[in-house]
Design a protein around this nucleic acid. Structure first.
Length: 456
RNA sequence: GUGGUUGUAGCUCAGUUGGUUAGAGCGCCUGAUUGUGGUUCAGGAGGUCGUCGGUUCGAGACCGAUCUUCCACCCCA
C-alpha cells in the first residue's frame, strides 16, 4: 500500500469552507485596521537567527524553529563543538536562520532597518503566520496566524484609547457580544512589588498573580511563598485578590495601596486617563474592565497591558492581547521609540464564532448556479449564459463533462449549489433556459435576462 | 521540555481471558431511474489493525521503541 500521507504535528489543512470563514474574519480585521489608519506591511517567514534568539527568554529560544544551513553543514562544525555534544553551541554553528516566532520582533527589526523611510508615528498592521515548536493542544498550534496592529513613535495614551476602540469596532462588526477588554498597567504591578518589598521578584510576583483565576487565591499564595515572597508582603496585596466593583472603585483601592510608590501612581494615572476618555466616547459592544491580576508573560511590556476574554459561557481563553513597550527597538539600536500594539487570535476567534453560530451565510457562499452539460453544442449555448451571469457578478459554472444527469445533479447537491440550469435542444430552439431551484424543486423556463434577474 | 492519553475501512467507532476468513453505522461506486439531486430499495468495492521490533504454536489484543491524537504542566495566541 502507498504510504499514508500526513502533516506535521500542530499544523492543519483548511477546507474551502474553513478558508472562506477565516477570510471573513481576516477581511473584517483588515477593514477595521485600515479604517483606523494602520498600514499593512509584510516581513519574511524566516529571519536571521540573531534577530530572534534571546528576544523571548530561554523558554522562547527553545520554541523557535531553526532552519538547517544548506550544504555540508556538519563538516564546518568545529571539532570542539562537535565533541562537546552541546546542543546550543552546535545549533548556532549549523543554523543561522529561523522561522518567525511572532510579528512584533520582526516589526521592531523593520522599524529600525527602515527608520529613515518611515514617517512617525507609524501605525502598521500585519496578518501572517508564525511558528512555534510548542507541544500542541486545543486552540494551540505550531503554525498559526497572528493579526497584529502596532503604533510606534508616540507616547500619547490616546493610542491606547484607540486600541480599545479598535477592539470594540472589530467585535461589533463580527457580531460578537460579551467580549471583555481587560486592562492593567505594568507600572501598577511594579508599584505593588515595590510596595511590598519584592521589587526584585517582580516577574515571579506577576506570574503568580496572573494565575489567580486559574488556581485561586490559595494557589497564588502558595506559589508566591514558594518563590520567596514573605507572608507579610502577601498580606499587604491580598485586597487585590478579590477586588470588585467598577473601574473607578478598583482604582481607588489601588490608590490606597500604592500611595508610596511613584511608579504605581503613574500607572494609576494612565489607567484613569484611558478610562475617562473611553467613558466619554462610549463603547458599542465590548466592555472595558480593570484587572489587576492581568500580567501577561511578555517581558517587554512597560505600560498598559491588554487582554480580551471570550464571552462568558464559551470555553476559550483570551482571544486577543497586547500592550505598550517603551523600548522594543532598543535591542536593535534605536532608542526612545515607544510602541503600543494589540493582537487578535484568529484561530480562537474562529472557534468562538463557530460555537456561537455567528458566521453570516452570505460571507461563506460559493457557486450559486450550475449548468448541466448535455454535450458540445449545449455546452457552448450554456457558456454564453455563464459569461453574462459572471459579468453581472453572479458566480456560475458549467459542469465540465457531459456526464450522466444523476451525477451532475448530485454534484450540485453536494456542493450546496442553490440553482441548476438545464438547457438541451428544446431550450436552445426557444432561446430559453430551464432554471431549477434545488431546495424547492420548482423549475421554469426563462431568458438570459430572466436568469440574471432571478439570481440578483 | 515533564507527566498522562489515543491510534482498527474515506469518517465515527465495536472487536470477550491471546485462537479459523477482523465487523457496524455513515460515506463512496453500480443499478431500480436514457432530461432531474436529496428520500427509499437491491447489490458492490474498500483494512499490512499507526510503524518497527519482541514474547508466543498462534498477536488487532501482551511487552519495548518510535510517530501521531488529545489533556495537564511550563509557556503562550
Amino acid at each position: 500500500m502507498a504510504q499514508k500521507p500526513s502533516i506535521p504535528k500542530g499544523t492543519r489543512d483548511f477546507s474551502p469552507e474553513e478558508v472562506l470563514r477565516r477570510n471573513y474574519i481576516i477581511n473584517t480585521l483588515r477593514h477595521n485596521f485600515e479604517l483606523f489608519g494602520f498600514q499593512p506591511i509584510e516581513t519574511p517567514s524566516f529571519e536571521n537567527s540573531s534577530t530572534l534568539m534571546g528576544k523571548y527568554g530561554d523558554e522562547g529560544d527553545r520554541l523557535i524553529f531553526k532552519i538547517l544551513n544548506s550544504g555540508d553543514y556538519l563538516n564546518k562544525v568545529s571539532e570542539k563543538t562537535y565533541e562537546s555534544k552541546d546542543s546550543n553551541a552546535l545549533t548556532s554553528e549549523i543554523s543561522e536562520k529561523a522561522l518567525r516566532y511572532d510579528l512584533t520582533v520582526p516589526f521592531a527589526r523593520y522599524v529600525v532597518q527602515h527608520q529613515n523611510e518611515i514617517e512617525f508615528p507609524f501605525k502598521r498592521y500585519q496578518i501572517q503566520p508564525v511558528w512555534r515548536a510548542d507541544r500542541p493542544q486545543k486552540g494551540r498550534f505550531r503554525e498559526f496566524f497572528q493579526c497584529d496592529a502596532d503604533a510606534v513613535g508616540s507616547d500619547s495614551l490616546l493610542q491606547e484609547v484607540a486600541f480599545v476602540q479598535l477592539y470594540d469596532s472589530v467585535f461589533t462588526d463580527l457580531g460578537l457580544k460579551g467580549a471583555l477588554v481587560k486592562i492593567n498597567n505594568r507600572k501598577i504591578l511594579s508599584g505593588l512589588a515595590e510596595t511590598i518589598g519584592a521589587a526584585d521578584k517582580l516577574i515571579d510576583f506577576t506570574v503568580a498573580l496572573d494565575k489567580l483565576d486559574k488556581i485561586g487565591e490559595e494557589g497564588v499564595i502558595k506559589e508566591m511563598l514558594a518563590k520567596g515572597i514573605t507572608e507579610e508582603a502577601i498580606a499587604r496585596v491580598k485586597p487585590i485578590f478579590n477586588a470588585s466593583g467598577s473601574f473607578a472603585e478598583k482604582l481607588s483601592l489601588l490608590k490606597e495601596l500604592l500611595v508610596d510608590s511613584e511608579t504605581g501612581k503613574q500607572g494609576i494615572e494612565e489607567l484613569e486617563y484611558i478610562n475617562t476618555k473611553i467613558e466619554a466616547l462610549g463603547l458599542k459592544t465590548v466592555g472595558l474592565d480593570l484587572d489587576v491580576t492581568l500580567a501577561r508573560g511578555l517581558n517587554y511590556y512597560t505600560g498598559a497591558i491588554f487582554e480580551v476574554s471570550a464571552p462568558e459561557g464559551v470555553k476559550m481563553g483570551s482571544i486577543g492581547g497586547g500592550g505598550r513597550y517603551d523600548d522594543l527597538t532598543g535591542i536593535f539600536g534605536l532608542k526612545n521609540m515607544s510602541g503600543v500594539g494589540i493582537s487578535f487570535g484568529l484561530d480562537r476567534i474562529y472557534l468562538v464564532l463557530e460555537e456561537l453560530g455567528l458566521f453570516p451565510e452570505q460571507a461563506i457562499k460559493g457557486t450559486r448556479l450550475l449548468f448541466i452539460n448535455f454535450g458540445e453544442n449545449e455546452a457552448l449555448y450554456c457558456l454564453k449564459a455563464v459569461q453574462s451571469l459572471r459579468e453581472a457578478g453572479i458566480t456560475a459554472e458549467l459542469y465540465p463533462d457531459a456526464a450522466k444527469m444523476k451525477k451532475q445533479m448530485s454534484h450540485a447537491d453536494k456542493r450546496n449549489i442553490k440553482f441548476v440550469v438545464l438547457a438541451g435542444t428544446q431550450e436552445m430552439e426557444e432561446s430559453v433556459y430551464t432554471l431549477k431551484d434545488m431546495k424547492s424543486g420548482e423549475q421554469h423556463r426563462v431568458s438570459i435576462e430572466g436568469l440574471i434577474e432571478a439570481l440578483s
